[in-house]
C-alpha cells in the first residue's frame, strides 16, 4: 500500500518498519515453534494413548481368550462328569432291572412253591395267624388285616433287597 507521505519521511520510517517486520517475524516464528511443539506433544500423547489402548486391548484380549479357554475347559469337564454320572445311573438302573426280572422269574421255577410257602409263613409272623393271605400277581404273596398290609410280592422283595444293597453297588463302576 502506498502512503501519501513525502519521500524523506518514508526513508526515516524504514528502520522502524524493518524493526516491526523483524519483531513480527520473530513473533510468528515463536508462535510457529510453539505450535510445532504443542503439535509434537499432542502427537506424542496421542501415540502414547494409542499404545496404552493397544496394550489394554491385548491384555483384555488375552484375558478374554483365557476366560474363553477356561470356560471351554469347564464345559468340557462338566459334560464329561455328567456323562459319567449318567452312565453310573444307567448301570444302577440296569442292575435293578436285572435283579427284579431275575427274582420275578422265580415264579416259573420248580422251587417256587417252597418260596411261596416261606413268604406266607413270614406274612403270618408279621401280621398274626388271622391275616388274610392272597397271591400277588407276578409271584409272591400279599397279606392284610383290618389295619395293616404287607407286600411280599416277588417284585417288592427284590426292590427292598436292592435298597439295602449299599456299598457293594459301587463296585459296579470301581475299576
Amino acid at each position: 500500500m502506498k502512503t501519501s507521505l513525502p519521500a524523506p519521511m518514508t526513508a526515516a520510517l524504514e528502520p522502524v518498519r524493518a524493526r516491526l517486520l523483524r519483531a513480527a517475524e520473530a513473533d510468528a516464528a515463536a508462535m510457529l515453534a510453539t505450535a510445532d511443539k504443542d503439535a509434537a506433544t499432542i502427537l506424542r500423547q496421542a501415540e502414547a494413548q494409542a499404545a496404552d489402548l493397544l496394550a489394554e486391548a491385548r491384555e483384555r484380549g488375552a484375558a478374554d481368550a483365557e476366560a474363553v479357554r477356561r470356560a471351554a475347559h469347564v464345559r468340557a469337564r462338566r459334560t464329561a462328569r455328567a456323562r459319567e454320572l449318567a452312565a453310573r445311573r444307567e448301570c444302577w438302573e440296569e442292575l435293578r432291572r436285572q435283579v427284579i426280572r431275575g427274582v420275578e422269574a422265580l415264579r416259573t421255577t420248580e422251587g417256587y412253591p417252597r418260596i411261596e410257602a416261606g413268604l406266607t409263613a413270614r406274612a403270618h409272623r408279621l401280621l398274626g395267624p388271622r391275616a388274610r393271605i392272597s397271591p400277588a400277581p407276578g409271584g409272591g404273596v400279599l397279606a392284610e388285616d383290618e389295619t395293616r398290609r404287607v407286600d411280599l410280592s416277588l417284585t417288592q422283595c427284590a426292590r427292598r433287597a436292592l435298597d439295602g444293597a449299599g456299598p457293594e453297588v459301587e463296585e459296579l463302576w470301581t475299576p
Partner: peptide
C-alpha cells in the same frame, strides 16, 4: 461316596447320577 455329588436337600441326586451309597 458323597464327594463330588450334587443332591437336593434330602440327599437325592440332582446330578443325574445314581443314589449315594455310603459305607
Amino acid at each position: 461316596g458323597w464327594l463330588g455329588r450334587i443332591c437336593n436337600g434330602r440327599g437325592e441326586p440332582l446330578d443325574g447320577g445314581p443314589p449315594v451309597f455310603g459305607t
